[in-house]
Every structure is written in structure tokens, then in C-alpha cells.
């Protein structure tokens, strides 16, 4: 990761912390906290909102960075790769949980947001799916925009579930990600029946989506 990106991420992290204290913080106060000139910040971001958006986008850059640490990543299965993406994002979000709770809906979910997060997210998915050789030939026809969009929607579901997750250390969110990614993999590797049942049972007891819908 280059120096410039690192600096930008540092600014984004600091702004997430500032935001919790005061959601109308000034660039000046942010610069002061970081011990840099405001012009440095303006050199990278036009305004405060752009910094907050970049917070989300940069989580995916951190994800890409983390991939380099993982030994044997290329041997991961589809569901391992996909769940890895979700876990790392959740892990990132968790470190700024309060900020995410306050801003996710407005910055990522709202239909009129033009998010760099979404574009980068879809690109990450594309990489995951196109590198996979096991996907059955019929299923591979379904790859593409529609697939990535729908996974992105499910991702929102997972995040909303995580936001409301009362379980210790968010174990239920982790279990849900696991089951959900396995399900996607089973569909794509065409072995749906078994895991489908497990998943259904889990949904039955945790009913994340019903919680999600009622609360969002």
C-alpha cells in the first residue's frame, strides 16, 4: 500500500472517531487532531462527506491488503473467499462499530448514494468469482451484474443483522455469514439440498431477516 493511501486511510479513521463525538466536526479540528495542516486534508478530499465515504471504500483496500498475508489464499474455495471478504469487512466495521451504526444506512444503503464502496465491493466479488474454476457451467451463466448486485443486497442484510446482533462477540453474525456463503457456494457448485436444510433451520431460529426487516 502506498504512502498516500495510508495517509488517506489514517484521515478516514480519525474522521470516524471524530464523527462519534461531533457529527459536524470541522476539517480544521480533524487536522489538529492528526497534527497535520488542513491543506493536506483538502489535498485529498473535497469535503467532510467525501472523507466519510472514503472510510467505507478504504475498508475494501484494507481487505485487499490483508489478502496478501494469507498463505494459500488462491486455494480457498468460493465460499471461503467470499466469507473471508465478509469477515474482514465485519472485523473492520467492528473497530468503528459506533460510527457504522450511525452512518451505514445513510452512506451505503440509501439509493441515491454514489458509493465508491459499492464499486469496489463489486470489483472484489468479480475477482473472487472469475478466479474460481469449480463453478458449474450452468451456474457460471448467472455470473455477472445481477449476481453481484444481489450479493451486495445480501451483504446489507448481514450488516443489518450484525448491527442488531446481541450475541456475545457477534458469534451469530459469524455463523450466519458462514451458512450464507456456504449456501451461495452450494448453489454455484450445485449441491444445494443438504446445506439448504441447515440454513433453513438456522433462519428459523435466528430469523435474522425478519429481525432486519422489522428494525430497518
Amino acid at each position: 500500500m502506498d504512502k498516500e493511501t495510508k495517509l488517506k486511510i489514517k484521515i478516514a479513521d480519525a474522521s470516524a472517531s471524530r464523527y462519534i463525538e461531533n457529527n459536524r466536526f470541522t476539517i480544521q479540528s480533524l487536522a489538529q487532531q492528526l497534527d497535520i495542516e488542513p491543506s493536506v486534508i483538502f489535498g485529498h478530499f473535497p469535503n467532510r462527506s467525501a472523507i466519510l465515504d472514503y472510510f467505507y471504500e478504504s475498508r475494501l483496500l484494507l481487505f485487499a491488503e490483508d489478502l496478501k498475508q494469507i498463505k494459500g489464499y488462491s486455494d480457498f474455495s468460493l465460499s471461503e473467499k467470499m466469507s473471508n471478504l465478509f469477515y474482514l469487512l465485519i472485523d473492520q466495521f467492528q473497530q468503528h462499530r459506533e460510527f457504522v451504526l450511525l452512518t451505514y444506512k445513510e452512506r451505503i444503503l440509501s439509493p441515491n448514494c454514489s458509493s465508491g464502496f459499492q464499486k469496489t465491493f463489486v470489483r472484489s466479488l468479480e475477482e473472487i468469482f472469475s478466479a474460481d474454476v469449480q463453478i458449474s457451467s450452468t451456474a457460471s451463466l448467472c455470473k455477472g451484474r445481477f449476481l453481484y448486485q444481489s450479493i451486495f443486497c445480501h451483504f446489507h442484510g448481514l450488516i443489518l443483522f450484525w448491527m442488531n446482533d446481541q450475541s456475545q462477540n457477534y458469534v451469530n453474525s459469524m455463523a450466519l455469514i458462514d451458512k450464507w456463503c456456504s449456501l451461495i457456494e452450494e448453489i454455484y457448485y450445485s449441491k444445494i439440498i443438504d446445506r439448504g436444510f441447515d440454513f433453513t433451520k438456522f433462519l428459523f431460529y435466528q430469523s435474522p431477516f425478519s429481525k432486519m426487516i422489522s428494525k430497518s
Binding site: I70, F76, E80, S83, Y87, L88, D91, I177, D198
Partner: peptide, 14 residues
């Protein structure tokens, strides 16, 4: 179900 490699990492991190 077996815990896949990503989940193992995630649990350890968590």
C-alpha cells in the same frame, strides 16, 4: 459443519 479456513481466521481474530 467443518469450519472453513476463513472462519478459522475470523474466529481467532475475533
Amino acid at each position: 459443519p467443518p469450519i472453513n479456513k476463513s472462519l478459522v481466521r475470523a474466529i481467532i481474530k475475533q
